[in-house]
Design a protein around this nucleic acid. Sequence first.
DNA 1: GAACAAATGTTAAGTATTGTACATTTGTAA
DNA 2: TTACAAATGTACAATACTTAACATTTGTTC
Lengths: 229, 229
Amino acid sequence: MRDLLQFNTRPFMDMLTPAIADRVRAEATISSFSNGQLIQSRGDTRAGLSIIKSGAGQMGVFGEDGTFVMMSVLGPGQTFGEVTLFTDIPRTQDFVAIGPTEIYQLSAARFRALCEDESGLLETLLSITLARSHFLLDILDSIRRLPLRERVAKTLYSMELTAGQHGHVQCRQEDLADMIGVSRVSLSKALKDLTALGLIKLGYGSISFPDIEKFRDWVGRHCNVAIVS
Amino acid sequence: MRDLLQFNTRPFMDMLTPAIADRVRAEATISSFSNGQLIQSRGDTRAGLSIIKSGAGQMGVFGEDGTFVMMSVLGPGQTFGEVTLFTDIPRTQDFVAIGPTEIYQLSAARFRALCEDESGLLETLLSITLARSHFLLDILDSIRRLPLRERVAKTLYSMELTAGQHGHVQCRQEDLADMIGVSRVSLSKALKDLTALGLIKLGYGSISFPDIEKFRDWVGRHCNVAIVS
DNA sequence: GAACAAATGTTAAGTATTGTACATTTGTAA
DNA sequence: TTACAAATGTACAATACTTAACATTTGTTC
């Protein structure tokens, strides 16, 4: 699961200058959570910025029947709850700790005060939000346009780009299916197809790329990949 | 089609103070486009903010076969291309004029200069982007969690809230299907179901709500509606 | 290495959605 | 009013996806 981390946007804290990051850390309070604990719930109106200090968590929404639809996995330095800073929209998703996790909580008032001093803060938050928005649009487009096989390939491509070490990705098929939002059976079929094309090789808890160049090329030609900077 | 306008987020220009809005208008150049003309294309790296002065356009992506997948319709005061201001991501979507359309183009340099003077500008842009991001997340969640019938109802609910006059919505079924991303046949079936439930009434190019309170109530109970401010 | 748990592979029936095609209704312009 | 175009209604076969169940493989622990 850890390999799903940060496959979408760069961590907020890494984008700040060390000086600003230190000030953020200094101003924030720290809360600790244990594995599976609910860190925020949907509808929460507490205004403030939350930043992961250590550990990880999954964003998503609990249905009435308790099923959890995961949207993404966040790791150290990544933020959530920004929406409460500048809109009166409440927090829109549930956030559940994966393993022991510590969170910096920066109240809206303190964040605003910091912004006065450090103009880079707003700009950083804006660029993260824009990137996230771009990422979401891309996912939506993929859902509408691409067959499942291509969508799976594209997801693997993202994961390989950001989290992959040496042409393979560590990830259970079940988690991957959750992430893409399909059943494990459908995912399995798509993976089998990609295997038949010689693009990937399935392992136990991992997927490897026998010929990473060939894979990238195929994804580039079939999956409408947004140009990556 | 016009009724699809602005059903997602508030126009940028309406959120600025009149003084700032005037400065934005003064600094921008204006381009004109005719119906169907391509205003921006995917991959465009020209950094700057585009704001609709008059007319409208649809955001979306052209496939290789020329099919257009629409993501949203933007109207006067709404912006696009923000992503080029603070990230090095190119413009991610195509934008096509609906009817004669004028666009304010504000270069990245001028935008940044304006930001120095008018701190509210960044904050406004951030809140719009956050709201958009929230909106996209909500759509993704609906796609994964809700049956089509409920998703259609939820979309109609949004449209009625923002664009509806007196309990009805002006919109061709084909456009609605495009917007939700399903075939017209599936949409038709969902609409028929909602009609059978007494929630809507179908017309020629329009959908009306015989008992708007009943409709809102049903949507609230079945469609996981995010709390609206 | 034996026992167990975790992860993957596979099958089959059921449901939802699509594409295509054509019929019907509604609006519009001559 | 009549033609015509635009929009909606509907039927049918084909496809994609899901759920459920069970078999197999892989890793882990004693």
